[in-house]
Amino acid sequence: MAESFTPPAPTVRPAVLDDGPALGELDRSTWSTLHEVVERPQPPYAPFFDERHRPQDVLVAEEVSGDGGAAIVGYVRVVPPTPLVCNAHVRQIQGLAVAGRARGRGIGRALIRAACVAARGQGANRITLRVLGHNAPARALYASEGFTVEGVLPGEFFLGGRYVDDVLMGRPLSP
């Protein structure tokens, strides 16, 4: 009987510019109305990184593949929610994706925890996010990591023929 390969826990690291193509492909492969409010991307695809979406704002989860190479299996984008000095103590998760083949292995949780550590390292004492009301798996994950619902914008989006709430969640970043 052949042994199956169990990948080790992923490594979370800062993104680099060369990760852009793999991250773009991950974004396209995980697109769903469960968490997206924009239309499905179509060719020609926009680059993952641009002047508003910089490598230094992204953490990637990478795991060793069966052939010894490394593959990006997830990412989280953590940015200041506004350019205002009075809001500089807050960071916001503005994107989280995990490859379908890697789901259910704690990668999303590892990325959220790494995002909180990175935000604290940038001097933040609070982290926030927005999640669609019908995305129960993501909401449960965020709640299990200490995020609480801080507001709801009822029917904020019209997706798939129905109105969907925009749920605002946040949590303090204690040292």
Score class of each variant (00 low, 15 high):
residue 68 G to R: 07
residue 114 A to Q: 11
residue 102 A to V: 11
residue 172 P to A: 11
residue 123 G to K: 08
residue 102 A to I: 07
residue 27 D to H: 14
residue 135 N to F: 11
residue 139 R to K: 14
residue 174 S to P: 05
residue 86 C to T: 12
residue 173 L to M: 07
residue 106 G to P: 07
residue 167 V to I: 12
residue 113 R to D: 13
residue 17 L to M: 14
residue 13 R to A: 06
residue 3 E to P: 00
residue 78 V to H: 02
residue 53 H to T: 13
residue 145 E to W: 07
residue 169 M to N: 07
residue 147 F to Q: 11
residue 152 V to D: 07
residue 86 C to F: 03
residue 126 R to D: 03
residue 167 V to F: 02
residue 39 E to V: 03
residue 67 D to R: 12
residue 165 D to L: 03
residue 8 P to G: 12
residue 82 T to Y: 10
residue 2 A to P: 14
residue 60 V to W: 03
residue 153 L to K: 10
residue 18 D to R: 14
residue 63 E to H: 14
residue 139 R to Y: 01
residue 144 S to W: 05
residue 48 F to S: 03
residue 32 S to Y: 11
residue 71 A to H: 08
residue 47 P to W: 08
residue 71 A to K: 13
residue 144 S to R: 15
residue 54 R to L: 15
residue 124 A to V: 03
residue 99 A to R: 11
residue 85 V to D: 14
residue 30 T to A: 01
residue 7 P to M: 06
residue 165 D to Q: 06
residue 115 A to Q: 05
residue 102 A to L: 10
residue 160 G to R: 04
residue 88 A to R: 13
residue 42 Q to M: 14
residue 59 L to N: 01
residue 46 A to P: 02
residue 103 R to A: 02
residue 173 L to I: 05
residue 25 E to Y: 00
residue 97 A to E: 05
residue 170 G to E: 01
residue 105 R to E: 11
residue 106 G to M: 11
residue 174 S to F: 04
residue 93 I to Q: 04
residue 9 A to V: 10
residue 121 G to P: 01
residue 99 A to P: 04
residue 38 V to R: 09
residue 58 V to Y: 01
residue 144 S to C: 08
residue 74 G to P: 05
residue 145 E to K: 09
residue 20 G to N: 11
residue 15 A to F: 03
residue 131 V to F: 09
residue 65 S to R: 10
residue 78 V to D: 01
residue 17 L to K: 09
residue 82 T to F: 11
residue 48 F to L: 07
residue 37 V to T: 15
residue 140 A to S: 13
residue 144 S to N: 15
residue 29 S to E: 15
residue 31 W to Y: 08
residue 44 P to Q: 09
residue 160 G to V: 00
residue 107 I to S: 02
residue 159 L to P: 05
residue 55 P to C: 12
residue 4 S to Q: 14
residue 97 A to D: 09
residue 30 T to N: 03
residue 23 L to C: 04
residue 158 F to W: 10
